[in-house]
Design a protein around this nucleic acid. Sequence first.
DNA 1: GTCTATAATGGGATAGAC
DNA 2: GTCTATCCCATTATAGAC
Lengths: 217, 217
Amino acid sequence: MSKIDTKNRILDAAEVLFAERGFADTSLRLITSEADVNLASVNYHFGSKKELIQAVLDRYLSLFMPALDGRLQTLMAQDQLTLLQVFESFVEPLMKLSAVRANGPALFMQLLGRGYIDSQGHLRRFITTHYGATLHGITQAISKANPDLSPADLFWRLHFTLGTVVFTMASADALRDIAQADFGQQLDVEGLVRNVIPYLASGVGAPVESTRLSLVV
Amino acid sequence: MSKIDTKNRILDAAEVLFAERGFADTSLRLITSEADVNLASVNYHFGSKKELIQAVLDRYLSLFMPALDGRLQTLMAQDQLTLLQVFESFVEPLMKLSAVRANGPALFMQLLGRGYIDSQGHLRRFITTHYGATLHGITQAISKANPDLSPADLFWRLHFTLGTVVFTMASADALRDIAQADFGQQLDVEGLVRNVIPYLASGVGAPVESTRLSLVV
DNA sequence: GTCTATAATGGGATAGAC
DNA sequence: GTCTATCCCATTATAGAC
């Protein structure tokens, strides 16, 4: 096995620890000892812990977002599309993240969940400024698949969906252990993702009337 | 206004900060200065930061869980019940948490989300050991409302639901700000909860066949 | 029960030799 | 680029006077 450079050793160790323990609970000392590199090298290569976190996330985002973008554009060229199709278009870009490393898809989703909850809105801002076009493409595709949704409903349901996915992925390891112990079920990441898709599509496509009843003025 | 005792001053300050910033990012120094009590009093009254976190959560859990339990038992006495009814039975026990403090319902949901993601499974274990009977009642009610779900599907979809709710609530403040700015929409907590219910009910009730199609072997 | 003072630990970051 | 040594800061927790 060839020796990989220090920078990538740090990234590889950091993303696993960040995904498992969250950003705040992962010290640079832990990362560098796991990566078997010197403590000072993090600051040399990345400048600070915060910049390391961004680098870890962007290794995935810079692959995932353009791939998703392409998928969505293909989809939008169709006359008709369903919510199921929209959500299924996420799967392949996600699974291709195994190019970064074997369980890249799971790590990415876990990091996304951590990032959205941990730091107060840093990640949200980073994504909307850097990948705003792709995000807009998502809302357009869903709008086309379900034109009945008002912009406000669409906004909320997209965030419900995000919550479903990132929370599930953030606790995926624990949940799969339980499913294995209690039901003898073995799901890999793609199986888990495909398991959640009908739930998402059905939730996003739910009738809106009952929502309206309880709006507060 | 009457002077409340130190213990409750700590609890009141702690839960707000925990909900806003997460457990790891909230120091005892911040809590005690916000509560205007002495730093050492946390350890005197609660023993440790960890026990303070549990006390904060149990102030709500000890009210919410029995109330939900009663609701579910009433529901189970009916001949027929729908998923919407099951999820709507959560609303009143949740809203009654405003007895603890004005925005108790929102705080509780945010703390639940933080707890499930932050500490690696501590909260999950705490809830399953202390409130296992109520959790079992939830699965029974959903099973009765939708007998087609296999135990494994039910397990997954319940956790999808949990993810939807806690993630939404953990970022509720930011999301409501955005909804206000972009759509002029003002939702209070109950409005938000009732907004999410059709999504949940529809997701949990989604057909299971499409799930099966794409399971990976 | 409350306070001050301090212990003990672990964190991020950096200077400077190699 | 890498390493050691160290700075400086913040944390939790506690001892002991009041």
